[in-house]
Lab assay of single mutants.
Amino acid sequence: LTDEELVTMSVRELNQHLRGLSKEEIIQLKQRRRTLKNRGY
């Protein structure tokens, strides 16, 4: 997933992508998404 996709994707879509990932990967992705959102994309 690109940063842009992460930010513009709805939470529902995101959760579908996260299905099948490990807990660590999910946590990393969610942190990255929060960081991007805070940057004001």
Rank of each mutant, 00 (worst) to 15 (best):
Q31F: 08
T2D: 04
V11G: 06
E5A: 08
T2V: 02
S10I: 02
R32S: 00
K23M: 11
S22T: 12
L6I: 05
R12H: 11
K30Q: 08
L6M: 02
E13V: 06
Y41V: 13
Q28H: 11
Q16Y: 12
G20V: 04
H17L: 14
R12D: 09
Y41Q: 13
L1E: 01
E4D: 10
L29D: 00
G20P: 03
L36K: 02
M9A: 02
L1G: 01
L36H: 02
E13S: 05
R34S: 07
D3M: 03
K37H: 06
E13L: 06
K23S: 08
L14Q: 01
K30Y: 14
R34P: 00
T8Y: 08
L21I: 04
G20A: 06
R19F: 07
T2A: 04
Q16L: 13
L21D: 00
L29V: 13
D3H: 02
E25C: 08
L6A: 00
D3E: 03
M9E: 01
T35Y: 15
S22V: 04
E25D: 08
Q16A: 13
Q31N: 10
L18F: 14
T8S: 14
G20I: 05
N15V: 13
R32P: 00
S10F: 01
Q28K: 14
T8Q: 13
G20L: 08
R34C: 13
G20K: 09
L1V: 06
V7G: 05
Q31Y: 08
R34M: 06
Q31V: 10
T2L: 04
G40Y: 14
E4C: 14
T8E: 08
R33P: 00
M9D: 01
Q28M: 13
N38Q: 09
L14A: 00
K30P: 00
G40Q: 14
N38P: 03
D3N: 04
K37L: 15
L1C: 06
L29A: 06
K23C: 06
T35E: 15
T35H: 13
E4I: 11
N38S: 09
N38M: 10
V7K: 07
Q16N: 12
K30E: 04
L29E: 01
D3V: 02
L6C: 00
S22G: 07
K37G: 03
S22F: 03
I26R: 15
D3T: 02
H17N: 05
R32E: 00
R34N: 08
L18H: 01
R12E: 12
K23T: 10
R33I: 13
I26F: 04
E25L: 13
R32K: 05
E5N: 05
L36A: 04
L21T: 02
R39C: 15
L18G: 03
I27C: 12
Q31H: 10
R39N: 14
R32M: 02
T35M: 15
I26S: 08
K30A: 05
V7L: 13
N38F: 07
S10V: 02
E24D: 11
E13I: 05
E4L: 14
G40R: 07
T8I: 07
T8W: 06
V11E: 12
E24H: 10
M9P: 02
E24V: 09
R39Y: 09
H17I: 13
L29C: 05
L36F: 01
R12I: 07
S10D: 05
G20W: 07
L6P: 00
E5Q: 15
T35L: 15
T35V: 14
N15C: 15
Q31I: 13
L21W: 06
R33M: 09
I27G: 07
M9L: 07
E5P: 00
E5L: 08
G20Y: 08
E4F: 14
R12P: 06
L21A: 06
L1P: 05
L18M: 14
R33A: 05
H17Y: 15
E5S: 04
L1Y: 04
H17Q: 05
R33Y: 15
N15M: 14
T35W: 15
K37I: 15
L36I: 05
L29Q: 02
E13W: 03
L1F: 09
T8L: 09
Q31S: 10
L21E: 01
Q28E: 12
E5H: 06
R19M: 10
Q28G: 08
Q31W: 08
E5T: 05
K23G: 06
D3Y: 03
R34H: 08
E25H: 07
E25N: 06
L36M: 04
S22D: 06
R32C: 03
R39T: 11
L21H: 06
E5F: 05
M9Y: 01
Q16S: 09
R39S: 13
R12T: 09
S22M: 05
R19N: 08
L18A: 04
L29Y: 06
K23D: 08
N38W: 07
G40C: 15
K37N: 05
E25A: 11
D3W: 04
S10E: 03
K23R: 12
L29M: 07
R34V: 06
L29K: 02
T2Q: 03
L1D: 01
E25I: 11
Q28I: 13
R34F: 05
N38L: 11
T35A: 15
Q31L: 12
R12M: 09
I26H: 04
L18E: 01
E25P: 00
L36Y: 02
S10A: 04
L14P: 00
I27R: 13
K37F: 09
K37M: 14
S22A: 07
K30I: 15
G20T: 08
L1W: 06
L21M: 12
N38G: 09
V7Q: 06
Q16E: 12
K37S: 04
L14E: 01
H17E: 03
E24Y: 10
Q16W: 11
L36S: 02
T35N: 14
T35Q: 14
L18S: 04
L21S: 04
T35K: 14
T8P: 01
S22Q: 06
E13F: 03
